[in-house]
Design a protein around this nucleic acid. Structure first.
Lengths: 189, 189
DNA sequence: CTTGACTTGTCTATTGCTTGACAGTTTATC
DNA sequence: GATAAACTGTCAAGCAATAGACAAGTCAAG
């Protein structure tokens, strides 16, 4: 009630300057305290300063950095590369992101193979209906039912190949076609 | 040359009974020795017996088991679940595989989101051409160029929804549409 | 019997955290 | 001013599935 400033606490937080302790920051960003402690330990995000009791104090610039970190983490970029990107903003960033895109593609390929394998293991046709697996046959039926004839389908392949070759490749793979079959189709168009 | 049996070695391998040491087995299956050691340590694949020098000896039945393990591993099933499946062949196998399929779907969803995010971060349209990312716009252009009109496209959606609803959902997601947009499209058909 | 090549078992490191323990600090209440 | 709750710090271990280092063991040749 008597006021020597309304709450000079032991942490010496400047409420108007937006300074936070670990747990508070963690809660703000939906992270666990441990995560922030970990980021500190690997030198990815060090708090601006500490109190005399050695408590971590994070400031606004730390928050900016944390936001960048989380964005990149949401993109699946590993912490080691995030560190590089933040230290060397322009230079390597593009390369790292493109690299990550390639890794994602690779990962998707693997996952599709796993899907096929499992379906094969289960070998229960009734399950197939519920699963997001399209076979070549089904796909053709769908296009046919939409009114495309042989000529139209050829056009479709050609157009797909021209507009988005990489996506075309991925799509054919997702139908479970063999590499040779894919090569054949793509070369025809 | 003199024969007290043509090679009674310290390991006491019976060459006709197909027994192998760790490294040999590893090489046969293209695995690292560490992998087999690990499988042993967690009780997933224990060698049939050991030599007096405590070397691991794997027999044919171990090889059968290993093949099953690798097949399931190739399907992305975690070792802990593989163990359960091998101990209790019939009962839980189906459930575990279906569960794995769901996890794969989930993982693909995450990867697609990461793809979108990275492309957004890069924001370099010239890269987009090389990447397997299809936008709604592009997709429509492709179908149009194949000769489908508005009516045909509607048919196409309906047919897709009827034949493979889950795949339809996945496909729409992969175009980067928002959940609401997806819901709308699917309900119309 | 010694040398060298090749094993073996055991142990540690990796990624991105999470969980937990234990001790010191701060805060709020009485 | 004491006390309890809620915080903080540091350290350690844990997860999956290997990869690699290391010293000790084994084998074939000389």
């Amino acid at each position: 009630m008597c006021s020597r400033g309304h709450s000079v606490n032991g942490l010496r937080l400047h409420p108007n300057r937006m300074e936070y302790t670990v747990s508070k920051l963690a809660r703000m960003y939906g992270l666990s305290r441990s995560t922030l402690l970990y980021y500190d330990s690997i030198g990815l995000l060090k708090p601006a300063h500490r109190t005399e009791a050695h408590y971590r104090i994070y400031t606004e610039s730390d928050m900016n950095r944390l936001e960048q970190i989380r964005t990149l983490r949401n993109a699946g970029v590993p912490l080691s590369e995030i560190k590089i990107m933040l230290e060397d903003p322009a230079s390597r960033s593009g390369r790292i992101l493109v690299q990550r895109l390639k890794a994602i593609q690779q990962q998707m390929k693997i996952l599709r193979q796993q899907q096929r394998l499992i379906v094969h293991l289960l070998d229960k046709p009734q399950l197939l209906k519920k699963l997001p697996l399209l076979s070549k046959k089904k796909w053709i039926l769908i296009l046919r039912a939409s009114g495309l004839d042989d000529k139209g389908m050829e056009l479709w392949h050609r157009e797909f190949e021209k507009t988005a070759p990489a996506a075309h490749q991925d799509f054919l793979e997702s139908l479970g076609l063999s590499p040779e079959e894919i090569r054949e189709i793509r070369q025809q168009h």
